[in-house]
Design a protein around this nucleic acid. Structure first.
Lengths: 186, 186, 186, 186
DNA sequence: CATGAATGAGGCTTCATTCAT
DNA sequence: CATGAATGAAGCCTCATTCAT
């Protein structure tokens, strides 16, 4: 990790900590200690802790979308890709012990003035939504309006499966969500 | 509010604050100041801040389930009751400016040792789930196994609608979820 | 313990706690909880925590002096009794894991205005001193002045052995003190 | 005092307070107020109150041993040095109004988990003991074993004289201890 | 870019005591 | 005599941030 630049090291360390311990549970001191970075150096790259979280979420967005799209890329039809998304959820959430969604986790208990972070969450969710809409529109099976409608339903299932599996520390919500998605897409 | 007992005042005040500002964003000092109670009095009734949150969630569970069941009580069939639940969500979440679910919000960024709070969330979600399962079983339209399966799907839609409407500060997820529920229940 | 009166129960419980946990480490709440006594009842019998400590030390004085004198009563000469006192120390301090002297422990880190407690310590130490002086005077081997002088030396050895064995959590100071006493008394 | 660094100011202030008021009687707030330091600055230098006490005891050890050895350095034989140690005690304890031994005072009523402080006390007492043993061995008058035995006796007299003079607020224990030491060393 | 000192504001918790029932 | 509510003062500690070197 030492060959990375300072900024990268901070984001990488903070990402690990923010996701696994939570935003409020992670202090600036732990970040700089584990990143091996001086405090002033950190504040040269980031105006505030909130800004680090923004960088974390931006990077996470790229990684997460990439992983998801990789995972479903073997499927031929777009519908199959959407269904496979639930398998992606399953593998991911199991691996992280149902730690939940980075964006959900960080917005639910945040000071009211942390808008930059909230914006990142909106951007992320919008991108996922757009991706789902696009997939369904490309299939040509639905009208654009129908595609958006069904897509939204699938997205809600995704979100619900994530948060519920986090609370229950169990994978049944993911399985159930997949079942619902299959039926809604048929 | 002065005619209430100290304990009630604390829970009431804390409930307001925990739900609207978040658990981590609400300090003990603010709670006692707004409740008009001495700090040590508070600790006579509650061993810790976490215990206040537990009391808050317990009370909230009673209120929330009651309101929901009241709301849907006018419907004749159980399926209709379930569908109407999404209308309940709509009214509630709009009123609270899409502040989301008290249980979701409090567990997503919590110190790792706050198990009592996490347990409350699990209890709440289990109760909701049991209620949904019961409704569908009573209808007699599904086998017990099917009722549980479909019920879980509906629950996931509820959860997804709540969290997504919170992030988006918009009611479309609730509308979309209702649409999906209607189709899944037919 | 339930057949005892309230006052006795408080003193008995507090004695256990004060001696084993320390005065500052023992709270009024723990005392009343373990004694099974209401707070107001306690404050009816004792004006303050300090007063409980005074009662504790008074009772301890009686018990401690009694045990010591019992222990050495089998010895025929008074010199032998004094020497045997070190054996008493050894048995006692080993049994209590070198928890030290109740009086020493309670005065060394006390608010400056706790004079009642300090007085108890002085009374106790004076009584022990008087007892030692008396023993040596009775023997008739020393002049009164010599008896007091040698007695004081023995007492200092006793005190030193107690505090040092407490710090070292070891019995060597008691053994060494006995050795010195034997030589000083010959 | 302002020209000292923050850390030194904290230790110096805390030393004064810990020794004169006691460890439990001295709060962090008083320390920082009298040292003229912000609370967080203090915690930058010391992880906890216990750590401040450790620093205090370490510094005190150096000062105390130094003063003692200075005091006795005019004596030619080691035996004389040991005897003179009681004169050192006398001067010191009189000056501090029989406030007693910093190490004795701090361990006798300490929360059970304060091991770092307890260790400091053991280290200090061991150093004193080693010094006494060394002096007697160097004299060549005793075998090594005898030197250690007699040395331990002297040490116990020192400890006993300190604690007893503290309780009695009087110097007779020091005088008596010196008398005993003289006889034991002859 | 590193080091870490310094800070103000606030975090949660506990104390011995009093008082009303 | 029991119950336990209520309290003011104080306890120890941590936060994100700024600044001087």
């Amino acid at each position: 990790m030492k060959q990375l630049g300072v900024k990268e090291r901070i984001v990488e360390t903070a990402s690990e900590l923010f996701y696994n311990q939570g935003y409020n549970q992670t202090g600036i001191n732990q970040i700089i200690a584990e990143a091996g970075v001086a405090k002033a150096s950190m504040y040269q790259h980031f105006r505030s802790k909130e800004d680090i979280a923004v960088a974390y979420l931006k990077q996470r967005h790229i990684n997460w979308m990439g992983s998801l799209q990789d995972f479903v890329s073997t499927k031929t039809t777009n519908k199959e890709k959407l269904i496979a998304s639930f398998d992606y959820l399953h593998g991911w959430l199991t691996e992280v012990s149902f730690r939940g969604c980075g964006w959900q986790n960080i917005i639910t208990d945040l000071p009211s003035d942390h808008d930059k972070i909230k914006n990142q969450a909106v951007l992320h969710k919008n991108d996922v939504r757009a991706w789902v809409h696009k997939l369904l529109k490309e299939d040509g099976e639905y009208s654009d309006k129908q595609a958006e409608q069904v897509g939204d339903e699938v997205i809600i299932l995704l979100e619900g499966a994530i948060i519920l599996s986090q609370i229950q520390k169990n994978d049944w919500p993911i399985t159930a969500a997949k079942g619902a998605a299959v039926r809604l897409l048929t």
